[in-house]
Nucleic acid binder design. Structure first.
Lengths: 207, 207
DNA sequence: TAATATTACGAACGTTCGTGCGTTACGCAA
DNA sequence: TTGCGTAACGCACGAACGTTCGTAATATTA
């Protein structure tokens, strides 16, 4: 059970890159076979169906997300530092556009929002869990006194989510060269605004 | 030049609905011909190419956006009221999911962010223009004293954009039944926070 | 080395895709 | 009513799609 798993890995890895650029629906056995110098059928046998391949790619992406974002982020000190760590890693993940487009997940969120199936279900589950995790972290930050009392944790998470999504559009579609910096600034602003301190007149920070 | 334009309209209208559900790439002459009880070739003749059809659909969507969001929104009183009108109409447009999925534009923003071509170019142009328009409206609101001085208009627009995008994901992918209300609340919060007033301790408004 | 499971292949299938081309039906003005 | 230009059609094409299947090659184990 070693050889098969290895090539399966190679396949998924390659497919992940395609999906990052063209979307999960851009994955086809034909081009994948050509890129990997394999036969379509040999490729097919590993997944049983196209949907199986898409699902495998999605699950792999989720695993990577956990490894790169969730787990390292959780190691930070509980409360606001942990939330900040999680969110900034999220942003960094989203930013990773080189080669294997790192943002397969949020792209799929738009691609599959109206297309029933296992892929969508899996995507919904993972997204829900991730956002819920962030909401918990936010709640802890509030209870720890790092954040102002009265903050709606779920609204906070939606706001962070919005920053992520807007960043992606700015960077990839609109070609804003400073999208990274601006998104980070927006995220910082969100944190600053949430802190439990006196309400002095705020000054803007962006250039 | 009446008969042809009429069926062309019918075609685009139908294609727009498909694109709202499946994305611009979900448009195919085959299914379109079946739905319209026409021949593929007769359909084809109206647009010259698939890309031509996609472009026509996109342009039509942009026109609708202008008619439903931009122009009515601009009629509001200059300054914060106009900005508010624009943004809430934007949200309402995005929310229109019945039948012809109203959000073709932001879906396409993710679909075409890495796919060169006329469609993408057109999309980029229209998006840039829209966001710039909002930024101008925001600037005016600042100069009119409706908004706090020191606000970064472009950052403000990005934040509103984020609310729109996060709303879409919450509504269509995650199935949040209260997505509409929450997005409107987030938008209101953004406005409240931007106003030029004393900084009293803010209370949350969401449930 | 022999036997056996795993892994990959090649060819073909039925569809559907976008796109051409020659021809027919139709709407409108003379 | 006749003529003409536009609009729509039928048909066919090459390519790519996902999928199936029988078979060859390769690993693994005895």
């Amino acid at each position: 059970m070693t050889k098969g798993a290895a090539t399966r890995d190679r396949i998924i890895q390659r497919a992940e890159r395609i999906a990052g650029l063209e979307g999960l629906d851009g994955i086809t056995f034909g081009v994948l076979a050509a890129e990997l110098a394999m036969s379509k059928s040999g490729l097919f046998a590993h997944f049983g169906s196209r949907e199986g391949l898409q699902l495998a790619v999605l699950l792999r992406a989720v695993d990577r997300f956990h490894a790169d974002v969730l787990y390292p982020g959780l190691r930070a000190r509980s409360g606001e530092p942990r939330l900040r760590s999680l969110v900034h890693r999220w942003l960094a993940w989203e930013r990773t556009r080189e080669a294997r487009g790192g943002d397969l997940l949020s792209a799929a969120a738009f691609e599959f929002d109206d297309r029933p199936g296992i892929v969508r279900d899996c995507l919904v589950t993972s997204q829900r869990r991730w956002l819920a995790t962030l909401a918990v972290a936010c709640t802890i930050a509030i209870e720890a006194g790092h954040f102002r009392a009265g903050i709606d944790a779920e609204a906070w998470v939606r706001e962070a989510h919005g920053v992520i999504l807007a960043h992606r559009v700015a960077q990839r579609l609109l070609g804003d060269a400073q999208a990274d910096r601006r998104a980070a600034a927006a995220m910082d602003e969100l944190f600053a605004r949430s802190r439990e301190v006196a309400h002095k007149p705020r000054r803007r920070r962006a250039a």
